[in-house]
C-alpha cells in the first residue's frame, strides 16, 4: 500500500513538473505560436503573391498606356474626319475593293491610245493574287497586244507607272516589224484589288498616323497620279477583243456586260469636279 501511494506520488510529481515547465515557458510558447501563425498566414502567402502582383501591375500599366495613346489617336482622327475620309476615297480609287474588269480594260485601252499605240488585242482574266508584308491581295489582268514604235512603248509604260487605278506589268515581249521601225508588243497588265473589312479590337493599338511624313508623302504621291474615269468609256472596237479566258466576253462589253457595281461600292464619278482633288491628265 505504501508503494502504491509512492507510485501515485511519482505520477503526480511528473505531471506537476510538466505543468511547472509549461507555466515557466508560457511566453516563449505563445510567442513562437504567433510567429508560426504570422509566417503561415501572412509572410508565406504574401511572398508568393507579391511577384505576380508586380508583374500584373506592370502589364496593366503598359495596357493602360496603349489604350491612352489609342484614345488620343482616335480623337485626332475624329478631329480630322474629313481628311481621313478624303484619303480613304483616294486610296480606294487607286487600290479598288472589287475586281471591276471593265473600267480596268477601258483604262488600259485609253493609256495605249494616249501613248499613240494601236491596240491589236485586248482581253481580261481574273484569278491569281499576290502578297506583301502588309497582306495579301487579288489580281485581275489585262492581256494586251499593241503596235507602235519604241518611244510610244516607253510612253505607254510611263502612263502605266503613273496611273490610277494602280496597275503593274509582269514582263513583256516585243518583235521588230519588217520596216525596222514599228514593234509589236504583248504583255499582261495586272491590277491588284483588295477588299478590307476590319473589326474594332479594343486593346490593339492603331498604327495609322495621318500626320506622319511617310503617310503625307504617300497621299501626295497618289494625288499626282492620272485618274481614268470610266463614266466616259472609249468604244473599243469589236475585233480587238479576243477569246482567251473563262472570264472574258465577246462583242461590245457595255452591251453584253453592263457594269453592275457591288453593294456599297462607289459609283463612277460623272463629273471630275466632284473628285475631292484635282485629277491630272497626261
Amino acid at each position: 500500500m505504501q508503494e502504491e501511494v509512492n507510485e501515485k506520488k511519482g505520477i503526480s510529481f511528473d505531471t506537476a513538473r510538466l505543468k511547472d515547465t509549461l507555466l515557466n515557458f508560457i511566453v516563449p510558447l505563445v510567442a513562437f505560436a504567433v510567429i508560426a501563425g504570422l509566417f503561415m498566414l501572412i509572410i508565406l502567402p504574401t511572398m508568393k503573391s507579391l511577384p505576380n502582383l508586380k508583374q500584373e501591375l506592370t502589364q496593366k500599366e503598359a495596357l493602360s498606356e496603349i489604350l491612352y495613346t489609342k484614345n488620343n489617336v482616335l480623337d485626332r482622327l475624329v478631329d480630322f474626319k474629313s481628311i481621313v475620309s478624303e484619303n480613304s476615297t483616294l486610296v480606294d480609287r487607286v487600290l479598288v475593293s472589287e475586281e471591276e474588269p471593265l473600267p480596268l480594260q477601258d483604262q488600259v485601252y485609253k493609256m495605249a491610245i494616249d501613248a499613240g499605240l494601236e491596240v491589236t488585242k485586248l482581253s481580261y482574266s481574273s484569278g491569281g493574287g499576290g502578297k506583301t508584308e502588309a497582306g495579301a491581295y487579288k489580281i485581275v489582268g489585262i492581256s494586251i497586244g499593241i503596235d507602235g514604235n519604241y518611244d510610244e512603248l516607253v510612253k505607254f509604260f510611263e502612263l502605266v507607272e503613273n496611273a490610277a487605278r494602280f496597275v503593274q506589268i509582269d514582263g513583256f515581249r516585243f518583235n521588230l516589224g519588217k520596216d525596222n521601225q514599228s514593234i509589236s508588243t504583248d504583255m499582261r497588265v495586272d491590277a491588284p484589288y483588295l477588299f478590307v473589312a476590319s473589326q474594332a479590337v479594343t486593346d490593339d493599338p492603331i498604327e495609322l498616323d495621318i500626320a506622319s511624313d511617310d503617310f503625307i508623302k504617300f497621299v501626295n504621291r497618289l494625288k499626282e497620279l492620272n485618274f481614268y474615269i470610266f463614266s466616259e468609256p472609249v468604244e473599243i472596237p469589236v475585233g480587238i477583243l479576243v477569246e482567251g479566258t473563262e472570264e472574258e466576253t465577246e462583242g461590245t462589253l457595255e452591251e453584253e456586260n453592263p457594269v453592275i457595281p457591288p453593294e456599297g461600292a462607289e459609283q463612277p464619278v460623272e463629273n471630275p469636279s466632284e473628285l475631292p482633288f484635282e485629277p491630272v491628265t497626261p
Binding site: 489617336v73 482616335l74 482622327l77 506583301t132 502588309a134 497582306g135 491581295y137 503593274q168 492603331i206 495609322l208
Partner: peptide
C-alpha cells in the same frame, strides 16, 4: 464609343500599307 472611326482607320491603314509596298 469611337468604334466606327477605328474600323475606318484600320481599313485605310491596311490598304495604305499594301499599296505603299506595291508602289
Amino acid at each position: 464609343a469611337k468604334k466606327q472611326v477605328e474600323i475606318d482607320a484600320r481599313n485605310l491603314d491596311k490598304k495604305y500599307s499594301v499599296l505603299e509596298e506595291l508602289f
